[in-house]
Amino acid sequence: MFYPNSPQTSPQLTQIPYGQQYAMMQRQIQQPYHPFATTEPQARLYPYHYQGPIQQEQGGFITQQSTAASPQYVQMRVTPVDQSIMSGYPNQTANGSSSSSFNYNIHPQQQQQQQQQQQQLRHHAMPVGSVPLQDDRYRKQLIVNYLAPDVTSTDLHELFSRFGELDGARIIYDKQTNMSKGYGFVYFCHAEDAKEAVERMSGYEFHGKWLKVGYSTNPLNIVPSNSSPYVHAGSRGAAG
């Protein structure tokens, strides 16, 4: 039997160049792979992502010199942007860049009308829970959420009447099932009393439920100042 490094198959040491006398086997001759043993700084910083320098080929596509990437890492192929796409944008300079302001050559009167329309939209648009300043009635009506099913309009009136005089209180019921929808409205005579009720009743436990109280901004629920107070009856038909 002959071994790869046996004296019968191995040459004389004098015939082997210096430095390879003890590297006779194939696994010894093959050098191990060192990912950080390279002179390129990109490979030292990113050993798993770097795959060699990027070269520009004919046709405008950018390719990489090395083989496919590892399945664990996804390499994105980048193509140059066609400058003709950006030619339609206004205020574009000769080098292809555009300024931040756009001039669509709008007539001054049209621009003024658009600004007025935007101001009107901001004036009428009102986020949930906010209180408008032009109508004091919005500051007097509250919406009470997360009410228990057994709470009546009379219970709601008695709960909030300790903060001040009320114009009314009612629970909203479903017309088909005649069941409470879980929320109601309270109408105060003074805005200061309503503000105190919002601050003190939010998070209050009532009939096993934690109440959420806020201003009601729905104009359909506003009680006119010259109208008669609501009837605080315990029956659902009268309260709904």
Rank of each mutant, 00 (worst) to 15 (best):
S153K: 14
F36W: 04
Y183E: 12
G208S: 04
R139V: 00
G59V: 15
A169V: 04
V213Q: 15
K209Q: 01
Q12H: 03
A68Q: 14
G234L: 08
P127R: 11
F163Y: 15
K181N: 08
P127E: 03
G208E: 08
P90W: 04
F61T: 06
G214D: 03
E196L: 12
T177E: 06
Y89T: 03
Y33D: 08
P132T: 12
Y204C: 08
I16A: 02
G60L: 06
G96C: 05
Q30V: 13
Y230S: 09
Y89C: 08
Y3H: 06
M24F: 15
V231C: 14
K209Y: 01
G96D: 05
V81H: 14
S84T: 11
S98I: 09
P224E: 06
Y33E: 10
Q28V: 15
R162W: 02
M126P: 09
Q42F: 12
Y183K: 02
Q114Y: 09
Q141M: 00
D155L: 02
Y18V: 08
K212F: 11
G60S: 08
Q118F: 09
D135A: 11
Y183M: 00
Y146D: 02
E205I: 13
M25D: 00
I85G: 07
Y18F: 00
I85A: 09
M86A: 13
R236E: 06
T154A: 08
Y230Q: 09
Q176T: 10
Q117C: 09
L142G: 13
G168A: 00
H232G: 12
Q51H: 11
Q110H: 01
I143V: 00
R122S: 10
T9F: 12
A238I: 02
S228L: 09
G203P: 10
Y18E: 10
P80T: 03
L159G: 04
Q134K: 04
L45S: 03
Y50Q: 09
D174P: 05
Q134G: 15
Y18M: 15
K195Y: 08
Q42W: 12
S99P: 14
P224L: 02
R77D: 03
T93C: 05
R139K: 10
I172E: 03
F188I: 02
M24P: 08
Y89V: 06
E205V: 02
A68Y: 14
I171M: 08
F185T: 13
V198W: 13
V231W: 15
H107Q: 05
S161D: 11
G203L: 05
N105W: 00
G203Y: 02
L220R: 15
Q72G: 10
Q12V: 04
Y46E: 07
Y230N: 01
G184W: 06
M86L: 08
R77A: 06
H107A: 11
I172L: 04
Q113I: 13
K212N: 02
G182Q: 14
L13G: 09
S180R: 02
I222V: 10
E57Y: 10
I29R: 04
P149L: 05
L142C: 15
A194Q: 04
F206C: 02
T152A: 03
F102V: 12
K209E: 06
N221H: 12
N91Y: 08
Q141P: 06
V131P: 08
Q116D: 01
Q75E: 01
H232P: 12
Q92W: 09
Q141L: 01
L133S: 08
H34T: 08
P90N: 09
G60K: 03
G237Q: 01
S97A: 04
V231P: 08
Y215F: 08
N145W: 12
G182V: 05
S101A: 10
G184Y: 10
H157M: 15
Y187L: 08
G234I: 05
S161E: 01
R236H: 01
R139G: 06
Q15T: 04
M76N: 03
Q120R: 12
Q15W: 04
G182C: 10
T67Q: 12
N218D: 01
H123Y: 01
D167I: 09
Q92I: 10
Q31I: 11
T217G: 05
